[in-house]
Design a protein around this nucleic acid. Sequence first.
DNA 1: AATGAATGAGTATTCATTCAT
DNA 2: CATGAATGAATACTCATTCAT
Lengths: 222, 222, 222, 222
Amino acid sequence: MPSEPAPNTEEPRRRRKEARPGELVAAALDVFVERGFAAARLDEIAARAGVSKGTLYLYFESKEALFKAVVQEAIVPRIAEGEAMVASLDMAPEPLLRELLLGWWEVVANSKLSGIPKLVIGEAANFPDVAQFYFDNVVQRGRALLVSVIERGIAEGAFRPGDPLVLCQLALAPMLFASMWSRSLACCDPQGMSPDVYLRTHLEVFLGGLRAEPGRIPLPAA
Amino acid sequence: MPSEPAPNTEEPRRRRKEARPGELVAAALDVFVERGFAAARLDEIAARAGVSKGTLYLYFESKEALFKAVVQEAIVPRIAEGEAMVASLDMAPEPLLRELLLGWWEVVANSKLSGIPKLVIGEAANFPDVAQFYFDNVVQRGRALLVSVIERGIAEGAFRPGDPLVLCQLALAPMLFASMWSRSLACCDPQGMSPDVYLRTHLEVFLGGLRAEPGRIPLPAA
Amino acid sequence: MPSEPAPNTEEPRRRRKEARPGELVAAALDVFVERGFAAARLDEIAARAGVSKGTLYLYFESKEALFKAVVQEAIVPRIAEGEAMVASLDMAPEPLLRELLLGWWEVVANSKLSGIPKLVIGEAANFPDVAQFYFDNVVQRGRALLVSVIERGIAEGAFRPGDPLVLCQLALAPMLFASMWSRSLACCDPQGMSPDVYLRTHLEVFLGGLRAEPGRIPLPAA
Amino acid sequence: MPSEPAPNTEEPRRRRKEARPGELVAAALDVFVERGFAAARLDEIAARAGVSKGTLYLYFESKEALFKAVVQEAIVPRIAEGEAMVASLDMAPEPLLRELLLGWWEVVANSKLSGIPKLVIGEAANFPDVAQFYFDNVVQRGRALLVSVIERGIAEGAFRPGDPLVLCQLALAPMLFASMWSRSLACCDPQGMSPDVYLRTHLEVFLGGLRAEPGRIPLPAA
DNA sequence: AATGAATGAGTATTCATTCAT
DNA sequence: CATGAATGAATACTCATTCAT
């Protein structure tokens, strides 16, 4: 009769306990991104995290809560990094904007994270709480970031005058769209398209069209 | 006690029979767009069309077949109109491209149809057959249309040289994205954004960045 | 406006009208035998008969009624033939019994008809009316036939004394079983078995065991 | 108002868990035998086992899997017993064959088990997987048992020469047929028939016809 | 803290039967 | 007579959530 439990070949208990929520969130991110919100099965998330389904409910009170945690853990910090970048970098608006978009592309577009916008947009109508949470915590803060840079660019005369929010959306749309595409219809396309060419063309065309140049009229306004 | 049966307030049988598939497809379009493919309940489609669930199976052998019929009836003809437009209009590339994008926006973006791309992109991973069908019948044909115009623009020196497929995607992405947005997160946004300003800004910026002008370098290529 | 209907290239109306029920019953026999009673779809029966589903209900008030008609048309006359045979043939009991069993084998076992016993036995519990109908119209009459021959054989000292009904059942069981087997598990058996050897062995063994011979004791009795 | 929770009248969780599959299989056997495979409702099986429908799927992944488990648990062990019997008993072929058939009759014919052959034969055409499984696991092994005894009997000169597989089938057919009959048309027969007389007559007639005796010719062969 | 057995509401699909034309 | 459109009840299977251990 051993007075001590069999030597644990896995992580020590204490570490696991603290690490649990993070492991669960990581597994959840995987499954949510692969299947979407509605189609993700808690069973599969639990299995991938190596725990039982019941354990999920120890840490998260529902599927929605789990998803919110995924957003909180995986996406919100990326936004914060962008905010820090803007605060610390002392660059002219166009290079800064370019830098931000490139940074987003590198961090998000090529990782699992890029699956989240697709999921949220695709299922927002069926899960309004999820949508609202994402909007408040990700969209609003992300927009504020870009809008501030664009507003400065307009104020400084680097960009054509226009609606900054509209321009923010137009800067992001092709990138978000590409990330959604790559996780949906891209696999139906036998030839494909170079993501690199796509991104550089977008930046070149978008910034080329946004730049204030002699003879250019202001962009539309409300 | 009427000696004659109550006057039939319903459509005569013969007419209904021919009208049925169309009514079903219309109801299905509504529900698919509101709920997505997986979450759309056949019950609801039937109820909205005023028939029983069994009747759906008289005309469509499965949910997927019904969805394919929706795409076939509602989307494919719009593509055909675009093809006809390109064939008949004798315009310079830039105005033609502008016209096509505007036409798409008017016909699609403001109708239920704009819900279909969101649905397909959001659920392609879970329903590969649906995705392939949409890709083959809508994406490919739509792309061919725009790509031909863009190629001509490049050849004639109106547009900067670049990858036509990439440019096609970049022309459409902000529009498709906006239509997806309006059916998902837009309702979380208290202030909103003028679709009109959005579209005109996109055209102005995109075409402004695409236009060949002295001193401009070619766009990236593979 | 033709005063006469377009020349019918098919069967003339009058003949078809009378032939209808027979065609329906024939199609029904096929489908019932292939699928069983519950799994037979009226759709398929109608399609095979080249009529609409509704037409079936013009002639038969339900699936059960249709099945009863099948039994009536296809099986009952076969029994009558056996009865006629016994009445007309003036043979000793053993050759007569042999003749009857051989006749049954030839007429029934190798035709679709042999599917009916399997169906009735397999689904009697779920469709008691069908079972009762079959029992009254087929089993009882068939038994009476064989029992009379067996009783005569016993009375004349050709067969060992025993329960005639039991002997009747034992004479038929291997044949009915074989016909059920050939429509069910036979296809799982890669090697198979010669039906001819099977039948001849049965007759040889059964009649060999039934025959009264010196030193043999009577068979069991109730 | 009891200060303590009501004494748990149900089984403790741990015990139930291990007992569950067995209880489910037992309930399934009942319902499959009463209704057949297609007509058996999972609802009813679950209700009879005192669990919810979902619980069935915790243990068996489909109706087919449940049925295979029934065969595995309820029938296969019976075959094994027969195999053990042949291996252990040192008897002459005829008594051994008689013993095996009697044993089968006692164990199977009078229990629910006898409903399984009826079910399999009745629905094999509609459920080929089920049929194949039954054939491989029950029919083949059962045949091997009897065939070996029959072959030995022929070799030792106790039985007339003939096709052992055919003789095996002929030995079993009346017994299997009787078990199917008792669960189908027997209830339509007001007078009935003594199973005991039936069985003893079969053994007497069959073995009487099979026994090698002076002056008997060999049985048919392929 | 962790488990995993149990639940039961929810949904696509099938098919005998009806009835207006 | 004949049609075939319409019905709606029936059923296997799924999965988020609960809770006794």
